[in-house]
Design a protein around this nucleic acid. Structure first.
Lengths: 124, 124
DNA sequence: CGTCACAGTGACGTTAACGTCAACTCCTCT
DNA sequence: AGAGGAGTTGACGTTAACGTCACTGTGACG
């Protein structure tokens, strides 16, 4: 698959693919000077994009992908991904707890302001 | 309050306070060349730090703080803060939903691998 | 053979929120 | 007067994930 086809299929820019290669997330083969993305690269890109949606850094993703190639195979890769996901989840839930608290505080303050008749127009 | 006292009270560095001043989040008065942080600056700093914990950008925070000084007073400031908080909460809950899904997927995959007897040691 | 469109390689730009010097300026204490 | 220490202003460094040139190369087409 050429770089152009990749871009259209996965909705990324050429710059992005070249960047991922530089960061060793993808390893397209070369025909002369041109890049050709293999079936493996496409599979990896799918995982990369999914990882990004979940908020993982490219570095985290790279390390996870590498497990597949090196020793562990799919199993080690999945374990690693699982562990990272659990961590991220914990982080986000902690943040959510804080935010929930902030929202509650703000709501209380607004209610108070309203009770005092301080709120003008579109407050509630 | 001198910059040093501020740093110790709120656990920030001088650089941070000067940075906040440059970004117009704080407006300490000057005695000669030195900064003096007023009661108002301390109140603002508290709000800034709280905003940061909740994941707001300094720019968002600045705009919210400005509402206090300009026209609206406390009320407008609170409304603005409330609106921003609601937005952030929505963002984070959307992320959490995606993450929950990812975790579920990973768990399913791991379970499958385990069922097939592919998992070696500390998988479950 | 010219030229077009696409590819590839640097290399610098961008945003956020400060960290990390360097080089003063002042005030104070001795 | 000299030594310290705190404070001040630049100004460049840092991290992440690319964007945006600028310039070069190259295969295909008319």
């Amino acid at each position: 698959m050429t770089i152009r086809e990749m871009c259209e299929s996965y909705n990324v820019t050429p710059r992005t693919l070249r960047f991922y290669e530089a960061k060793e997330l993808l390893h397209p083969i070369r025909i002369g000077t041109r890049r050709l993305f293999t079936r493996r690269d496409r599979a990896r890109l799918v995982l990369i994009l999914r990882g990004k949606r979940f908020g993982f850094s490219l570095e985290d993703i790279r390390q996870t992908l590498d497990l597949y190639d090196r020793d562990g195979g799919v199993t080690a890769q999945r374990q690693r991904a699982f562990e990272l996901a659990v961590k991220r989840l914990a982080e986000m839930e902690a943040q959510r707890a804080e935010l929930d608290l902030a929202i509650a505080e703000l709501k209380a303050e607004l209610a108070e302001a309203e009770a005092k008749g301080l709120v003008p127009r579109h407050a509630a």
